[in-house]
Each structure stands twice: as structure tokens, then as C-alpha cells.
Amino acid sequence: MNSIILVFLLLFVSQAQAQLQVGFYSQTCANAESIVKSVVTEATLSNPRAPPILLRLHFHDCFVEGCDASILIENGPESENKAAGHLGIGGFEYIAKAKQLIENECPGVVSCADIVAIAARDVVALVGGPVYEVETGRRDGRVSDSKLAVFMPRVDESAASLRSKFEKKGLSNEELIILSGAHTIGTAACFFMQKRLYRYNATNESDPEINPCFLPELKRLCPKNGDENVRIAMDPVTGDRFDNQPYQNIKNGYAVLASDARFYDDGLTKPVVDFYANGSRFGQDFANALVKLGRIGVKFGASGEIRRICNAFN
């Protein structure tokens, strides 16, 4: 049964790849990508958190119902973006601004799903990551439901559980680790640290995988019963630039998120962490993994629409 599912996923990905293309809007809205780039560049200059926010938005969008901008829809308390798995998600205003500017120039042509993917590509380059071409041609989805986000990856999951979730999306163990490298930039709320620091495995202890030299610093930043909205860098060493430091952090016990630390406990993911901690291929492999992520569950033709505004169905 698993082999049948895998064949189906590979077929689905290959079909998406065949219909997506670089430069999809070159004839119908030639300035679309440059408009998105100008918006996210301005956003980054005014808010240094914009790049990780927009990169995370792309991942969260693609992981639920595919890359169809369903996460942007505001249709009440049951909308997808209200799901617990999307806690802290943001960047909607940047996508909305880019969409409005594009609509002024090319009404009804460019999907919100493509804007999300283009924005992710541009912010990766802005923080020193790889420059790559993004495939476009997606249409926007017509479904938004918080119940569909129950299988989003969580920070307290085992590597085996995360591997299973990624496999169901057609992503390999290697791509799980590569995409987790997005934690080279950005922050995490102390909300996600409380169990790991003070109630690990239902005890009053801390996660033993945290380096003893790092544990006091984490507790200082995220004190017990402190403000859980305080944010700390996910890469405490070089968190302001795109590099392979997260893998070295995992090896050395300096991983901030529990899920990242678990990758070094698992026989299938540990060698991949070691490879990227010691190698120099991370940038290009990250770009390739993002392109593949962007093919998940893509809508074409009558299966989707081109929204007039990104937070509401037509």
C-alpha cells in the first residue's frame, strides 16, 4: 500500500512540474515578479523579521491543501490560519500589498499562491541564501478549514513522526532535514520552549540533549512562567545570516527547537545532519528542496481560481 501511495505522489509531483514553469507571467504580467521583489525588499528593510516570516508562510501554505494560498483566507474562526499548527504565522500584509499592486497593473492574472512562492524565493536571496528560479502557474484554492491543518509538523515531535509527515507530502528524509535548515534565520516564541526546558517528557527536568553550557542561557531567555511571547533566535550563533550553522548547532546541543534536536537521535536523519554540518552544498540543496515543496498539491485550471484579493474567495 505504501508503495502505491508513493507512486501516486511521484506522479502527482511530476504532473505539477510539467504544468508549472519559470516565467509563467512573462507575457501576461511581465512586471509581476519585480513587483513582489520590491515589496518584500521594502518589508525587509523596515522589519528584519520579514524574511523568516515569509519563508515560513510558504512552507505552512504548501503543507496544508498544497501551495494554493489557502492559508491567507479569512473566513471566520474556522479558517485554516486559525489552526493551532499555524500559531504565530504572519506576513499576510506583504502578500496583500504585492497583490494589490499587481492587480492595478494586471487584473485577474497572477495568483496569490504564486505571490507567496515568489516572496519566499526573494527573501531567501535577501538574507544571503541561494538565488534560484521559482516556478509559477499555480491557481488559488477554494477551501480553507482549520481542521485540515491538524497534521502540521510540531516542535515536540519525534524525527520518525516528522519523517512520516514529510513522506506523505512526497518529501524525502533528506529534504526534511534540508528544509529544517530554514531555522538558520528567524525566531521562536518562548511558548514553544516551556516543555523542553521545564517539563521534558512529563518530568520537572530539561531535555538532556541541550548542551549544559547552553541550558542556562535558554532558561534566562525563556524563564519558567515568564512571558511566553518573547522571541529568541532559532540559530543562537549566526542567526542573522543564511548558512549551515543549524546543523552544527544540532550536533553540539545548541538546537533551540526540540524537533531539531531529535534529528540527532534518529538513525536515518543523523547522517544527513552530519553531512550538511560538514559540507558546503546546503544552499543549492535548500533551493532545490524549496522548488519541490512549491509543487505540492498545486491547483490548475478549473481546480482553482485567481483571487481578486488574497484573503477571500471570489
Rank of each mutant, 00 (worst) to 15 (best):
G23R: 05
N204W: 10
D140T: 02
S161M: 08
C112M: 12
F151E: 13
V39N: 07
I185S: 09
A312D: 09
N288K: 15
N81V: 04
K147L: 10
S161E: 14
P208A: 02
A289E: 00
R307D: 13
A159D: 09
L10E: 08
A125H: 15
G239D: 06
R139L: 12
P48D: 12
L10N: 04
F24I: 03
E135F: 00
A113H: 11
G294Y: 09
C112K: 05
S146V: 10
L6P: 02
L218I: 10
R262P: 02
K168D: 02
Q17E: 15
D156M: 08
L55G: 15
D274A: 14
N211L: 02
Y254P: 07
P51I: 00
N204P: 00
I5K: 06
N201K: 13
E74R: 07
V272N: 06
N252F: 03
K299P: 02
V256M: 10
K292N: 05
E205Q: 15
G170V: 11
D145E: 13
D285Q: 09
R220F: 12
Y94H: 13
K169C: 04
V256P: 12
G279W: 10
A255N: 02
A120L: 01
F300G: 04
H183P: 10
G297H: 04
V40C: 05
G253M: 03
V40E: 12
I177E: 09
F59E: 08
L20R: 14
L45W: 10
L290W: 04
H60M: 05
I306Y: 03
P236Y: 04
N311C: 10
R241F: 12
D61A: 11
A159Q: 06
R231I: 01
Q19C: 08
Y198L: 11
S46K: 15
V124F: 11
R49A: 10
F8M: 07
P271D: 00
Q21P: 08
L197N: 13
S280N: 15
S161F: 01
E167S: 07
I115C: 11
L11K: 03
G85F: 02
Q19G: 07
A233C: 07
P153K: 08
A289F: 03
